[in-house]
């Protein structure tokens, strides 16, 4: 193992999440079962300065895992530790060292990026001077300073995503949890986001990235966990996982071996 991977920053131990399905959800899922195991005993670790990719099809349990790691929801079994803090026992400590970016967390359309940055900075207890210098640096880095006083409701999808990204790291967290960060973005904004993820990695941040875009994983991730039906199907470095094959080929091999034909 490289030196850079010596520090274990995130450790998930047998994470399990079961959802109760309403009748409506049973209809949508075409099942008569009242409970669905979304995440089933998931364990993995992420180290300082690495990007760990969670790869899987829709409904595999990627987002549920990330929501548990960011303490938005509690696991029904197992636990996870972020910088040594248990997501079950110390959720507030975890929230202070985690930046979570997901489409589920929205920004109030009425406010400007400038106001929201200050607001969320205060919510994370960042002092005013640090907040001012971070705002200057990040707004300039993403070109937000050009629309800092425009209400979020009037911004384009790409601009909104940039603002969301910047606000998710307002408190300079050591761990970044990004759920499908390039979804719905045009190629230019997607490149800005992926470049920034690489930059953050270079700064020694630990990033957990959920995606179903193979090229993004190949470009950014040091290690990958393939999740299928809430379980860890395969895990390892890209090289160890794929060998001479492409990630896409390898993923479908794994999927086929577990689920049979793709329909």
């Amino acid at each position: 193992m490289d030196d850079i991977f010596q520090d274990e920053i995130v450790r998930a131990e047998g994470l399990k999440k079961v959802f109760t399905l309403s009748r409506k959800q049973q209809k949508i899922e075409k099942t008569g079962l009242t409970r669905k195991v979304a995440v089933d005993g998931l364990s993995f670790s992420a180290y300082r300065g690495e990007i760990y990719g969670l790869l899987g099809p829709n409904g595999a349990g990627k987002t549920t895992t990330l929501r548990m790691l960011s303490t938005l929801i509690k696991p029904d079994g197992g636990d996870a530790y972020i910088l040594g803090h248990s997501i079950l026992k110390e959720p507030a400590m975890v929230r202070d060292c985690v930046g979570f970016l997901t489409s589920e967390l929205k920004l109030e359309a009425f406010f400007t990026p400038d106001y929201l940055f200050d607001f969320f900075g205060a919510m994370h207890g960042v002092d005013k001077d640090t907040l001012a210098s971070r705002k200057k640096e990040l707004f300039s880095r993403f070109g937000i300073d050009r629309f800092a006083q425009v209400k979020v409701g009037d911004l384009s999808t790409g601009m909104k995503q940039k603002v969301s990204l910047v606000i998710s790291i307002v408190h300079d967290p050591d761990v970044l949890i990004f759920d499908e960060p390039t979804n719905g973005l045009d190629v230019l904004t997607a490149k800005v986001v992926t470049d920034f993820l690489a930059e953050l990695k270079g700064m020694g941040k630990s990033i957990i990235l959920s995606t179903h875009i193979f090229s993004l994983v190949e470009k950014l991730c040091d290690r990958v966990g393939v999740i299928i039906d809430g379980k860890m199907a395969q895990e390892g470095s890209l090289q160890a996982l794929c060998g001479e094959k492409s990630l896409e080929e390898r993923f479908f091999e794994i999927y086929h071996s577990l689920k049979g034909e793709i329909v």
Binding site: A92, R95, E104, L105, L107, E108, F120, M123, G125
Partner: peptide
């Protein structure tokens, strides 16, 4: 309104009690 729009969840993701 904030709950429906998902903006309350963003506040809940911070360390505020």
């Amino acid at each position: 309104g904030e709950k429906e729009r998902g903006t309350l969840a963003t506040i809940l993701a911070t360390s505020a009690k």
